[in-house]
């Protein structure tokens, strides 16, 4: 991709094609698919949450299938060890009767890693993902191994089965750019799902982009300009989640124990840039910020006991914050 015109056109073409190919497999969930794509094109990792059977794994597999990228799937279980995902050093016989230690890469060494049911693994194994997700390197036996770009972890988790699970710690959650919620399909969507999956052959997505395309799209998204007042709006929204902020709204001071980190503000702006490009715009708007606010910050808020007692979730807090924080000129 040489010039900006070509780049942006290609960006929108690939995004549209990706959406179409995913749509061949996934019925409905347009908003969730849109957010997962934003996360992918922003170069971030995405945590997908939903009850079993809603197509979380299928969504990730569809994305991987539509992209000519190396894909691996790790089914997280309690007995999964860190080395099972990072890889390990093995002794390999070389010529002349010599034996050398050789690093055998684990499933993390892929472009798209599906961490299925991530909350079933022990914290030790979950923590093994931290370095990979944050620094895109894996250290085994004192030796760091860089992961291939693009690198994207798409993790799924089930919110209802708590027995035998290990909720992700805040530090781990903070590494995910987005947390996307997948809800139940509507009646029409369910009818279409049944029509597609219970008769004939299931359709499979076609490859529409290569790894280099994705890399180029990630680079391009970071160059989308953002005006200072829009940045200030993102900052104001992030600050509004901090309960110790004197200007925080009442819902924050009442129900939030810990607010969003600077990484949350970064996620807001970065994701908003992708959202702008996906809508054919070349600048970030207030609307883009509001659009990505829930998936970018919902997993970064730690709510208190009162919120739990009153069934107030992070989305309710963010919705009220979005209504209360007025952008400049409004």
């Amino acid at each position: 991709m040489s010039d900006a015109n070509t780049d942006t056109q290609r960006f929108q073409e690939v995004a549209r094609s990706l959406r179409d190919e995913i749509g061949r497999v996934i019925v409905g969930h347009d908003r969730a698919v849109h957010h997962v794509l934003i996360s992918l094109l922003a170069g971030g990792h995405c945590l997908i949450e939903g009850v079993p059977g809603l197509g979380k794994t299928m969504l990730v597999k569809a994305i991987a299938a539509a992209l000519d990228l190396k894909y691996s799937r790790v089914q997280f279980t309690p007995d999964l060890m860190p080395a099972d995902i990072t890889g390990t050093t093995i002794i390999r016989e070389s010529g002349g009767g010599r034996h050398d230690f050789e690093f055998e890469p684990g499933p993390l060494f892929a472009n798209i890693v599906l961490a299925d049911e991530i909350n079933r693994a022990t914290p030790k194994t979950q923590a093994a993902l931290l370095e990979a997700m944050a620094e895109r390197t894996v250290t085994v036996a004192g030796e760091s191994h860089a992961l291939q770009a693009p690198f994207c972890v798409l993790a799924t988790q089930n919110p209802i089965e708590m027995a035998g699970t290990y909720p992700l710690p805040e530090a781990q959650l903070d590494r995910f750019l987005f947390k996307v919620l997948i809800g139940y399909p509507s009646g029409d969507e369910l009818e279409e799902i049944l029509g597609r999956t219970t008769a004939g052959e299931e359709q499979a997505p076609r490859q529409v982009a290569e790894g280099s395309d994705v890399e180029g799209m990630i680079r391009l998204a970071r160059e989308v300009p953002i005006a200072p007042h829009v940045t200030r709006y993102a900052v104001a929204l992030t600050k509004a989640t901090h309960p110790d902020n004197p200007e925080a709204p009442t819902i924050t001071t009442s129900y939030v124990r810990y607010g969003a980190s600077p990484r949350g503000a970064q996620a807001l702006v970065l994701a908003a840039k992708v959202a702008a490009l996906l809508t054919g715009r070349f600048n970030v708007s207030y609307e883009d910020i509001r659009e990505v606010l829930p998936p970018a910050l919902r997993h970064r808020l730690v709510l208190n006991f009162e919120a739990e007692a009153e069934a107030i979730d992070a989305d309710a807090v963010l919705e009220e914050i979005a209504m209360g924080v007025r952008p400049e000129g409004a």
Binding site: V224, P225, I226, A227, R281, N283, V284, E287, G329
Partner: peptide, 19 residues
């Protein structure tokens, strides 16, 4: 959607770039 204000910012700041 903040198109004009972003443009004014870019012009005043002398920012360049492919986009």
């Amino acid at each position: 959607n903040e198109r004009v204000s972003t443009a004014v910012h870019l012009v005043r700041a002398g920012v360049g770039g492919p986009l």
